[in-house]
Computed example of a mutant assay.
Amino acid sequence: MAGTDVGIDLGTASILVYIKGKGVVLKEPSVVAFDRDTNKIKAIGEEARLMLGRTPGNIVAVRPLRQGVISDFTVTEKMLEHFIRKAVGKKTFRKPKIAVCVPSGVTEVEKKAVEDATYQAGAREVFIIEEPIAAAIGAGIDISRPCGNMIVDIGGGTTDIAVISLGGTVVSTSIKIAGDDFDEAIVRFMRKKHNLLIGERTAEDIKIKVGSCYPRSEVDSIDVRGRNLVTGLPKTVTVTSEETEEALKETTSQIVEAVHSVLERTPPELTADIAERGIVLTGGGALLRGLEELLESKTGINTMTAEDPMKCVAIGTGKFVEFLSGHKDEEP
Rank of each mutant, 00 (worst) to 15 (best):
H260P: 00
S253Y: 14
V280D: 01
A162E: 00
E115F: 10
P309N: 02
R94A: 06
I154A: 01
R94H: 06
P103C: 04
P96G: 06
G278A: 07
V239Y: 03
E293S: 11
V256L: 00
E331T: 14
A139T: 06
K97H: 13
D9R: 00
V152W: 02
V170D: 08
K319M: 15
I255D: 03
K298Y: 03
T305G: 02
V106T: 13
A178H: 03
L295G: 09
E330K: 13
I164H: 07
L196E: 06
S144L: 13
I164K: 04
S144G: 09
S297R: 09
L263D: 07
D329L: 13
A314S: 04
I186D: 01
S174T: 13
E184V: 04
E296W: 11
G138E: 04
S297I: 01
L196C: 08
L197N: 11
G105T: 09
Q254A: 13
A306Y: 10
T107I: 03
E245Y: 05
R66W: 02
D35E: 12
H194E: 09
D160G: 05
T118D: 08
P234C: 02
G138R: 02
R49N: 15
R201Y: 10
I208E: 09
M51C: 03
I274F: 06
P215G: 13
T12F: 00
P103D: 06
D183L: 05
E125M: 11
E276N: 12
I141Q: 05
I44R: 06
F93I: 04
G45W: 12
G226F: 08
E243H: 10
E245A: 07
P103S: 04
K249P: 01
L263E: 05
E242S: 13
T158W: 13
C101R: 03
F182E: 05
G105M: 09
G23R: 11
S241D: 12
A314K: 05
I137R: 13
E307R: 12
E331Q: 15
D5H: 14
V171A: 05
D160I: 04
K95R: 14
K42L: 15
T244W: 07
P146Q: 14
S212Q: 12
A121G: 11
F93Y: 03
E47K: 11
V259I: 12
V170W: 11
M304F: 14
V17Q: 01
V230T: 14
P146R: 14
R85P: 02
N58M: 00
A275N: 15
M150L: 14
L281M: 03
E46Y: 13
N195R: 14
V224I: 14
S212C: 15
P234R: 04
I154Q: 03
L50Y: 13
I151H: 07
I8A: 02
V313E: 01
T282D: 05
A185L: 08
D180C: 01
G326K: 11
I41F: 09
L80T: 03
K90C: 06
R201F: 10
G211A: 02
A61G: 03
L270S: 04
K27L: 01
S165R: 10
K27W: 00
V69L: 11
K112H: 15
G148Y: 10
